[in-house]
């Protein structure tokens, strides 16, 4: 598997650390349900996913990878810092 880091270009998957689904951190007062969902509940989609990877042995950027679990396509990869803004 190869991931196209927006900074480094296309790189081997072994340079990356996988975190999981790219989610938005709830506000401190968002309530138990929101926090429970953020921490523990995950979809398992057959199709498009958005997930966080860390280019650990590369440039050190956190990236949001769009990946299709059915077709193996990776249509997108953007910097998490920009996606978060």
């Amino acid at each position: 598997m190869r991931i196209s880091c927006p900074i480094c270009g296309e790189r081997d998957r072994r340079e990356f650390h996988y975190r999981g689904a790219a989610l938005t951190r709830p506000a401190p007062d968002a309530g138990e349900a929101a926090w429970d969902a953020y921490l523990h509940l995950r979809d398992n989609p057959a199709g498009a996913t958005r997930e966080l990877w860390y280019h650990e042995t590369g440039c050190g950027a956190w990236v949001v990878v769009t990946r299709n679990t059915l077709t193996h396509e990776m249509p997108g990869c953007e910097l998490a810092a920009e996606a978060a803004r």
């Binding site: 951190r25 860390y54 050190g60 950027a61 956190w62 998490a80 978060a84």
Partner: peptide
């Protein structure tokens, strides 16, 4: 990794 996550993903500003 955690510090970078917090900075880049939660507080990029």
């Amino acid at each position: 990794r955690h510090l970078q996550f917090v900075h880049q993903c939660l507080r990029p500003d």
